[in-house]
Design a protein around this nucleic acid. Structure first.
Lengths: 228, 228
DNA sequence: GTCTATAGAATGATAGAC
DNA sequence: GTCTATCATTCTATAGAC
């Protein structure tokens, strides 16, 4: 009777299997076997394998975006309508990292699924990420308010870099651990968040200061460096 | 008679098709049709579709790593055995970005293939990237020489962040352009490289200074920020 | 509306002839 | 080393039961 019990069973099994073994290694037949439903039910409820993946990803993505905006609003209220640079960056990358980092065994199925989505980046997920621009725009607006004298392009670069560091840290945490022989602790989530926020904020605030100077303080060109 | 003419034909056609349409949308049958060879030849010469992709990726990857090391050596020679922080970062990300950024129509097939590899990140490519650690270690060594007083973990984080910004810029150049309404010019390759080098260098040098202070200057904790 | 059984088209891989 | 023929598996689509 519950019209979407089968639907929920599929979503549940799919998220778990994808989280465990990745998109490439899990077939629809694996999913329907785990869910105890018929193969055709997937196409009936979702249309295709890609749309099933997309549905899983938007569900988790929406939750993540909501957390981000909640934190952004809180920061704006705390700052009397104008949030601090670091607080904005924190709202942008904190929720994502908190969901994707931390000790392996403490991670939920949802976390593991999002890490997979971040690493494998299959077509349906890329399509959805490309529609994320409107969401990011809200952070750009907040940032312009926080840094009214900052060049607009620099603000976008700052947000881009913050996301880059956060994203790559979830993607390549293993490589960083190996490279540093364990000296970089990616399990200390809040420390990682602070580190990325500080790095991104630095590029924004230092640039702001520099661009206020008369000449515009253009970044040093490359050729100068290789000459003794 | 030329034992690997067929092999070369396959590699050539595969790189071109993968660059144009991505790994998921190109079948082995597409490749052999474009190369004018038989389907079974792929498995004979490469073993599997994944190994064909891997071969293409290592070929280009090796070339890229060689460019990086050449630039690193040059910077070390120019600095009398000790390269400058920015020069090291420049050697690390310059070759990759120069190959992946710039005006669309000027990009070679090899460039487009590497961008694809960066975006789609299929299993065979991930496997190879995981073996990249030894290569990165050389940059860590150079960096320790440039910043002898810097905390070792900070150095690894700095390299990680530099790679993160470079990588994400090739992956999501389109999103950044859209978000910034064209204000961020990703086609000015050298300017992008400088921007990333500056950002990464800042995290390294500022942290070094800070960590020299008596208390260690731990980064501000998150909770402090949300309080008015 | 919801689900099952089944058929179809396409893919990567392989065995064996030449 | 190359090719034909074929296999097992995959996603997708449809016809029809409940």
């Amino acid at each position: 009777m519950p019209s979407d019990r089968t639907r929920a069973l599929i979503l549940d099994a799919a998220e778990r299997l994808y989280a465990e073994r990745g998109f490439g290694d899990v077939t629809l037949r694996d999913i329907v076997a785990a869910a105890g439903v018929n193969l055709a039910a997937v196409n009936y409820h979702f249309g295709s394998k890609d749309e099933l993946i997309a549905e899983l990803f938007v569900t988790r993505g929406i939750a993540n975006n909501r957390e981000r905006l909640t934190e952004l609003k809180a920061a704006e209220v705390a700052g009397g309508g104008r949030a601090d640079v670091k607080a904005i960056l924190h709202a942008l990358i904190g929720p994502t990292l908190r969901g994707c980092l931390g000790p392996e065994n403490e991670r939920s199925t949802a976390s593991r699924f999002m890490i997979r989505a971040s690493i494998e980046s299959v077509p349906p997920i890329r399509r959805i990420k490309n529609r994320e621009v409107d969401h990011l725009r809200k952070f750009a607006v907040a940032m312009r308010r926080a840094l009214p004298d900052c060049d607009e392009a620099d603000i976008y670069w700052g947000l881009h870099f913050a996301l880059a560091m956060a994203h790559q840290t979830t993607r390549d945490a293993e490589r960083l651990t190996k490279l540093s022989d364990g000296q970089c602790d990616v399990d200390d989530v809040e420390a990682v968040i602070d580190r990325i926020v500080d790095a991104a904020a630095m590029t924004l605030t230092v640039r702001t200061t520099a661009s206020k100077s008369p000449e515009g303080a253009a970044p040093a060109r490359r050729a100068e460096r290789l000459r003794g």
